[in-house]
């Protein structure tokens, strides 16, 4: 059974002043589910809606339409007071730890805070727990890190603090939103491995959001590909990488340096991702797609299941 289930989720935002308001639909009718202990990789370029979807799944945003189910509970309309009890079971690891950790707080304070809010323990016990988790994320000697401020840490060290804070309450569900893209290549893997260690230990459902389909393919059991607010392909990670179906997925793979050796059909797209405020009619990729047919310009393709668990939203695969 799935731990996290998004059912036909729509997320709209209103932008602009009251005189010229525009409504943008950042996420458009997306359904995914993630099982306990499962790693789901969500890929797409900036503007694809992947981060927004991650935040909806944590109910940091209330979706405009659709349902968010967590551990069998429909949390779509749950008031903040009741959500708080569930919050400790779901946590976000953000892209930029510098913006998520209060620069004026010490690392110790940043770690103790969630414990005092969610768990009934004394300050001394909380400090002990903070020390323990710092050691677990490899920031030793822990006493020393407790008293440091964020600016005294490197990006990699601070991301370890962000992971420590997310894992303190042993959550069941983690959303990691581009957790390594601000870091140097030589330390990225260690951050990913750290997240995976906790994921295994607590048997967590993990939504790993990244623009890097190569990285995602190594850790996720399933991958979902988003383009302009919609899910366009989904399936087991191995088969997505070896036999991508959607032209957009093929283009993502083709764009990765040194990907020729894989033997995937090379697809080059024209232009750039469009404006989410004004998405193209029909299939949203059609202005850039080398395979675009008449129907692609007129009608939105349905999401079809090609083989069990393998879905694609593209007219090329619709038998007519």
């Amino acid at each position: 059974m799935s731990l996290v289930k998004l059912d036909n989720v729509v997320m709209e935002f209103e932008l602009g002043t009251f005189l010229s308001k525009t409504r943008i639909r950042a996420v458009d009718r997306v359904s995914i589910d993630i099982g306990r202990g499962e790693i789901y990789g969500l890929v797409g370029e900036s503007g694809s809606g992947k981060s927004t979807l991650g935040r909806v799944s944590l109910r940091l945003y209330k979706p405009t339409k659709g349902r968010v189910i967590f551990d069998g509970i429909d949390i779509t309309d749950l008031p903040e007071g009741k959500l708080r009890k569930l919050r400790k079971r779901m946590q976000l690891i953000p892209q930029d730890p510098f913006s998520s950790i209060n620069p004026l707080q010490t690392i110790g304070e940043a770690l103790i805070e969630p414990l005092l809010v969610h768990v009934d323990i004394s300050r001394e016990e909380a400090i002990e727990k903070a020390k323990e988790i710092l050691e677990e994320v490899g920031l030793t000697p822990a006493e020393e890190f407790l008293t440091r401020k964020p600016h005294q840490l490197s990006g990699g060290q601070l991301q370890r603090v962000a992971i420590a804070r997310a894992m303190l309450l042993k959550p069941d569900y983690i959303v990691a939103d581009e957790p390594t893209s601000n870091l140097d290549a030589s330390i990225r893997a260690s951050i990913v491995k750290l997240i995976l260690e906790f994921q295994r230990r607590f048997n967590q459902a993990l939504l790993f959001i990244s623009h890097d389909i190569a990285l995602v393919s190594l850790i996720a059991s399933r991958i979902g590909v988003m383009y302009l607010g919609q899910l366009v392909e989904e399936g087991p990670a191995k088969s997505i990488i070896r036999e991508p179906l959607h032209p957009y997925t093929k283009a993502l793979i083709s764009a990765i340096p040194l990907s020729e050796e894989l033997g995937v059909e090379r697809v080059v797209l024209k232009g750039e991702i469009g404006n989410i405020a004004n998405p193209p009619k029909g299939c949203r990729l059609h202005p850039r797609c080398p395979f675009a047919m008449d129907i692609c310009r007129r009608e939105e393709p349905p999401m079809i299941e090609v083989t069990p668990g393998r879905k694609v939203k593209c007219w090329l695969y619709v038998k007519r």
């Binding site: 030589s186 330390i187 893997a189 951050i191 491995k193 070896r242 894989l262």
Partner: peptide
């Protein structure tokens, strides 16, 4: 060698290696 090992390779099963420590 460390930098090369840190590249996530498509189609591989191995999580890349990182270089311990910081710059």
């Amino acid at each position: 060698q460390g930098l090369l090992a840190s590249i996530p390779r498509l189609g591989s099963d191995k999580i890349p290696e990182s270089i311990p420590g910081y710059p």
